[in-house]
Design a binder for these strands. Structure first.
Lengths: 141, 141
DNA sequence: TTTGTTGTAATGTCAACGGTTACATCAAAA
DNA sequence: TTTTGATGTAACCGTTGACATTACAACAAA
């Protein structure tokens, strides 16, 4: 099972907006042609990023523009903005048998371990900003 | 998106086998009644764990038994045994546009960050053994 | 008012998961 | 040797979520 590509699409879109936005009007069509997905997918992504206060999108006249500073946007912010995961990364089987000593205590034993693992992932995402990626990207361009 | 419950089902099953195995014959039916899923789901899980060399399952006479020491089984071992993920945790959109400066370099910029995040998750799973969980469980029983 | 764009609903396809039935295979006890 | 109780596995189903796509209303600026 994988984390939805909405996440990498969102990161890609933001890089496009923040890096190319001065030169071009960043419409959903233009971004879509860079990411190589349907423009509607981009509009949905931008809608989430807008709701999270990361960018602004102009209906009518068109174009997405930065709101937050790239230094203040972490990969974790993007990951939560596009709703990769609704709470728990790990699925847990429902209704373990409370009559069984293992079933009765499985949550007590396992829950915190799963939370720790998820937290490790999310902390790592938290440690990277969009500005970090832009620095790297500007060297390559 | 979530990591399949095969993982927590496998951990639950192993705890049952390692903790209750001395007292009971651990058949797929018995484990299924503790986990509260269909016995076939358990048989599939046990089959994976057997292929990974963690347990032995006796066809015919029935019952699952430990092979590896609980100290030598990490949550990561279980996670890989049941194939939660086939390589990359993060899905990446295919074919970003190589004509675009962002599309051309998105992998160079993002891949290592995603790998780091995934590694953080997996290292955390690697740091917990089945024996750790058994210790906790035995206190609660 | 025309034009280009965004917002969003609706629909279709596809893959994965988990549930379930069915049955062949197997090993040990009777 | 037959019976019994398990496992191994194929087959099929229903559900869910992702992503693609079409369609069109709403909108803002030229």
């Amino acid at each position: 099972m994988k984390i939805t590509s909405r996440f990498t699409v969102a990161v890609h879109s933001l890089l496009a907006i923040y890096v190319l936005g001065k030169e071009y009007k960043m419409t959903s069509d233009l971004i879509a042609s860079s990411v190589n997905v349907n423009p509607v997918v981009i509009r949905r992504t931008l809608s989430s990023l807008k709701a999270a206060g990361i960018i602004d999108v102009k209906a009518g006249s068109g174009g997405a523009t930065p709101v937050k500073s790239a230094d203040d946007i972490t990969l974790y912010d993007i990951y939560t903005a596009v709703d990769c995961i609704d709470g728990n990364l790990f699925n847990f089987h429902e209704n373990p048998n409370p009559e069984c000593p293992v079933g009765k205590n499985i949550h007590a034993v396992l829950d915190s371990r799963l939370k720790d693992a998820q937290a490790a992932l999310e902390n790592e995402l938290e440690s990277v900003t969009l500005a970090d990626l832009m620095k790297q990207l500007n060297i390559l361009i």
